[in-house]
Write a protein that binds this DNA or RNA. Structure first.
Lengths: 332, 332
DNA sequence: CCAGCGCATGTTTACGTAAACATTCCGTGT
DNA sequence: ACACGGAATGTTTACGTAAACATGCGCTGG
C-alpha cells in the first residue's frame, strides 16, 4: 500500500480510501491511484484488513458429509447468496455426526476467521456444543427445528408431507404407507408425524411405519417387504432416493407403478423426472433456504442487541410436482 | 492475550508460546496459562495471526455450481483432507461458467484470505483468468487436462472409458455406441476419444457419437433415438445420470436391458445400484482426487521454488463395477 | 477583503500476534 | 567460589490496514 501511495504521489490513507470506495477523493486522484494499483499488482491484504476492521466478511458453514442432495443445494445457495453480500464462505466439515466431532468443529471455529455461522445439521447434536461459541458470533440453523433456542430456516416438511398424503388420498387410496427416514433425523420425524396426522385427520388408519435410512438401497429392501402386501396401494417415501429403491423393488416383484401401487417422493432431485416411471414428488426450494439463512444471519449481525436476539423459525413452502408415479388405486 | 498474560502472571509472549504449542515453557507455567485462557474465554485472533504469520491456513476452492455429483464429492474430500492438515476451505462459487464470471472469481480471490487455490473446472475458461492471481498463490486443477500449464489431478477418464468399452466388446457385442457428455467438457471429450480409440484398436467401426449434456433428461431424449436402431446392442453412457435416462427410454420402447441392449455408465453414483436394472458402471474415486488435490497444493506451497514449480498430471484409477445392465448381445 | 467553512488529503495511531533479540536464573564443571 | 551454558521467560518491534484527528487550500458571503 505504501508503494502504491508513493507511485501515485499520495498518502497511504488516500489509497485506502480509493480501495474502499470511500468518498472524498477527486476523480483525478482516484484514477492515478487505481493506475498505480494496477501497475504494482496491489492486492489489499485481507488479514490486515480483517484485523483493522474487526470482521472477516466470512460466513462459516458447519455440515455433515455433503452426501445428501439437500445439504449440497443449500450450501450452494448459501455460497451464492453470501457472495452477493460480499461475504465468503468457509466450510467446516464434520466427518462423523458424533457429539465429539461437533464439539471439535465448534472449537476449531472459535479460532477460525468467521463472523457468523450457519449450521446445516440436526439440532440434537448442537445443544451441548454451542456454548463454546465465541461471543458475538451469530448462528442460524438450517434443516432442523428448535426455533425457540435458535434461529431456524427450514423447508416446510410438514406441509410437504401433508400435500403428498392428501394427493394420494384424493386419488382414492384407502390409506397411505410411509417409508420414513432414519429415526434421529428431525426432518424425517416431521414428515412422518405429518403423514400420520394427515391420515388420522382424514379418518384413516395409518399402517405401520416402514423405516429406511434415506438410501436407495434401504428403499429397495423396504420395498421388497411392501411389495408382498396386496393392501399396499400407495406409498409416500420420505425422499426420492428411497423412492427409487422402492420403484425397483416393486418392479422386481411384478407390481406396476402407478397401476398397482402409487409412489410419491420428497425432494425432487433432478433425476426424479427420469425414474421409471417419472416420480411424483414434493419439491423443496433449497435455494430459498440457503438465501434465507444468509440474510437471516446477516441481519442478526447487524441488529444484534445487547441481550441477544429473539429466535424463530422461517418455513419455506414446498410444491407438489405431479409426474407419472401416482394413479387411482386398482379396482378391487 | 494481554489479559491472559496478566492473569497468568506471565508475558504475552509466553501466552503465544503456549497457544502455539512451542517448547521452552515449563509444564507448570503452561498449566497456569491454559487455566487463564479458559477462564477468560480467550481465542486467538486469526486475523492478527494471519497478518503476523503471513499465511491464512486456508485453501480456496473455485467451482461451478455444485450440481454434479463428482464436484461435490471432490469438494467434500478436499474439505476433509484440508481439515486434517489444519487448513480451512473457503468456497468461491462461480454462478455461470462464462469467462467474465471466472475472471471475477479470480479477482475477488485476489483479496481473499487464501493461501492456495484448487480449481474444479474445465480448463479452457481458466486460461485467461489465472494471470490475475496474486503471485505465490499455488493452483491445482481437478477435473481437467493441461498438465503442461497447471498441476492437475484427475480421474483416469481414458482408462475408465477403455474398460467400459472392452467389457462390452468382451461380452460379444460387435460395437459400442457412446452417449457422450457436452462438447465443451474435457472429461466428456476424453471419454469419447478413448471410446473411439478402443473400438478402432479392436478393429471395430465406431458408430456415430450421440451427444448429451450430462442430464438424465438428455439421456432420455438420446435414448429414444437409440432405441429404434436394432443394430444398437451396447451403449456406453458418459455418466450415470444419462444412463438413467437411457434406461428409461429403452424401457419405454420395449427394449429390455440387458437382454436386448447392454448399458454401462460412468461415475458410480450411489443410486446406480438401484437403477432398473442395477447399473454396471465405472467407479470414480473422488475422495482420492480431493485428497491428492490438497496434498498437491500443500506440497507446492512448501517447495515453491523461485522459478515456479513444474506441472504435471496425476491420474486416479477407476474401477469397473459389474452389476446387471450388461449381458452378451441377443442371438441374431 | 478577510473570516470562516468545507472539501481533499496527510499524519498518527492501534488492531493482536509472533519473530527476534534481551534478560534472568539455575546448575555444573573447574 | 566463580565463570559459563542453557533453559525459561520478558521486551521490542513489525506485519498492513483504516479510524481518528490534523492540515491546507480554495471559495463564499458579509
Amino acid at each position: 500500500m505504501a508503494d502504491v501511495a508513493r507511485l501515485a504521489g499520495v498518502s497511504s490513507q488516500t489509497v485506502s480510501r480509493v480501495s474502499n470506495g470511500f468518498p472524498g477523493v477527486t476523480e483525478e486522484t482516484r484514477r492515478q491511484v487505481l493506475a498505480a494499483m494496477r501497475e504494482l499488482g496491489y492486492r489489499p491484504n485481507s488479514a490486515a484488513r480483517a484485523l483493522r476492521r474487526g470482521e472477516f466478511r466470512t460466513l462459516g458453514v458447519i455440515t455433515f458429509s455433503l452426501s445428501t442432495m439437500g445439504n449440497i443445494r443449500t450450501l450452494e445457495a448459501i455460497a451464492t447468496s453470501a457472495a452477493q453480500h460480499g461475504y465468503a464462505v468457509t466450510l467446516l466439515p464434520v466427518a462423523v455426526p458424533t457429539q465429539d466431532e461437533v464439539n471439535g468443529a465448534f472449537s476449531r471455529l472459535g479460532e477460525l476467521a468467521v463472523d457468523a455461522v450457519i449450521v446445516i445439521m440436526e439440532i440434537h447434536l448442537l445443544d451441548a456444543a454451542t456454548v463454546s461459541l465465541p461471543p458475538g458470533v451469530q448462528v442460524v440453523v438450517a434443516d432442523s427445528d428448535a426455533g425457540d433456542r435458535y434461529t431456524v430456516v427450514d423447508t416446510d416438511q410438514a406441509g410437504g408431507a401433508r400435500d403428498a398424503v392428501r394427493h394420494l388420498l384424493d386419488l382414492g387410496h384407502d390409506t397411505v404407507w410411509h417409508l420414513a427416514g432414519p429415526e434421529d433425523s428431525f426432518a424425517a420425524q416431521r414428515r412422518a408425524n405429518a403423514w400420520r396426522g394427515t391420515l388420522t385427520e382424514a379418518g384413516r388408519v395409518p399402517p405401520p411405519l416402514v423405516r429406511g435410512d434415506w438410501s436407495a438401497e434401504s428403499g429397495y429392501r423396504s420395498g421388497l417387504r411392501l411389495a408382498d402386501r396386496r393392501d399396499c396401494t400407495a406409498v409416500f417415501a420420505a425422499n426420492d432416493q428411497m423412492a427409487l429403491g422402492l420403484l425397483r423393488a416393486l418392479h422386481e416383484r411384478g407390481r406396476r407403478v402407478p397401476d398397482d401401487v402409487s409412489v410419491v417422493g420428497f425432494d425432487d432431485i433432478p433425476e426424479a423426472a427420469s425414474f421409471l416411471p417419472p416420480l411424483t414428488t414434493i419439491h423443496q426450494d433449497f435455494a430459498e433456504v440457503g438465501r434465507l439463512c444468509v440474510e437471516g444471519v446477516l441481519s442478526k449481525m447487524r441488529h444484534a442487541g445487547p441481550h441477544g436476539t429473539e429466535h424463530g423459525t422461517t418455513l419455506v413452502p414446498t410444491r407438489l410436482v405431479l409426474r407419472h408415479s401416482t394413479a387411482p388405486p386398482p379396482a378391487r
